[in-house]
């Protein structure tokens, strides 16, 4: 239903599906999320590609039409719920404004919709007149979720929605998202650097490295049989709770400078299975059943990219 091309790879999310997008800090996850609604902060810009949503190419849509989609058909949640709310306005007013902008209802009706949305995420109605700083972190994130989902969007982009929260609140928020996915048939793009969380919670996983997608596939398949060397290393580095004595695995080296990425496969300077061809030629994406992978290991190591 929603699809976008990032460099060479194709990604899609379906209704009622939770897609987890993982990658190291700085790999371009947020940029990908923001580019779907064309909100990349300048001087950044989208060079090329296509984002199809409800049969429209969002990259070609006039700003005004796109504005009607933002907040109504595509909801967004950000990492830090405190800074994502206007500190000077009551949360209720911020909810009501969003409703009024997108629908024909009056103030009274908008307030009712907002109160119902708050109730659904477990926020008491008397919080309606609170300012953001009067709420706890978990409550604020629930307000953000209410605001992003109250108009029943088709797609919800959640950019690290639980990173700023403690583990218990985190699992409650994730429960809430799973719930929305099921009850409202919402498509959810969950952006995070926490692969364990993604494997546990999402239907499909997309792994990103240095602005490129490495591998996409169903969570169980990826966790059982990762193909891309980067995914394999990421999985190995998840601490295993059952074997507390194992030593922490980490991936040696640093992510590349995105302004000046390595030629060929961007992962080659850190890849344990690097071959000659990897340094010269960018691998092509390969479709295997219900998954994609981009690595020369599965291309016979010979074919050209692009």
């Amino acid at each position: 239903m929603v699809s976008f091309e990032l460099l060479i790879m194709y990604l899609s999310i379906n209704r009622g599906e939770l897609l987890g997008l993982v990658g190291e800090s700085g790999s371009g996850k947020s940029s990908l999320g923001l580019s779907i609604v064309r909100l990349i902060p300048p001087p950044g810009r989208i060079v090329d590609g296509e984002i199809t949503f409800r049969g429209m190419n969002l990259l070609k849509l006039p700003e005004k039409e796109l504005r009607n989609i933002r907040g109504k058909h595509i909801g967004m949640i950000f990492q830090d719920p405190l800074t994502s709310l206007d500190p000077l306005r009551k949360i209720g007013d911020q909810l009501v404004e969003t409703i009024i902008v997108h629908t024909r209802v009056n103030e009274e009706e908008a307030k009712e919709i907002a109160l119902r949305a708050l109730e659904r995420v477990g926020i008491a109605p008397d919080r309606f007149d609170d300012y953001p700083h009067q709420l706890s972190g978990g409550m604020r994130q629930r307000v953000m979720i209410a605001m992003a989902t109250m108009l029943n969007p088709d797609l919800l982009i959640a950019d690290e929605p639980t990173t700023a929260l403690d583990v218990i609140v985190q699992s409650r928020i994730m429960d809430l998202l799973s719930d929305l996915k099921k009850s409202m048939k919402m498509a959810i793009l969950l952006i995070t650097h926490d692969l364990a969380l993604v494997i546990e919670r999402s239907d499909r996983v997309a792994v990103m490295y240095a602005g490129e997608l490495c591998e996409v596939g169903p969570s169980e398949v990826i966790s059982q049989e990762p193909l891309h060397p980067y995914t394999q290393l990421l999985l190995e580095s998840i601490p295993d709770i059952e074997k507390p004595r194992t030593k922490l695995v980490y991936i040696p080296g640093n992510p590349p400078d995105m302004r000046n990425p390595p030629t060929g496969c961007r992962f080659w300077p850190r890849c344990p299975k690097v071959m000659d061809v990897c340094k010269r030629i960018s691998p092509r994406s390969l479709e295997l059943d219900d998954r994609f992978v981009r690595c020369h290991l599965y291309n016979g190591g010979l074919e050209c990219g692009k």
């Binding site: 902060p41 933002r70 907040g71 500190p87 000077l88 953000m144």
Partner: peptide, 22 residues
Amino acid sequence: MRQDFVIAARARGIPEHRLVVH
């Protein structure tokens, strides 16, 4: 304008004339 809440408001489709006021 660089702050998260402005980007978040844009992501909710709040039109420019309201954004200026906020």
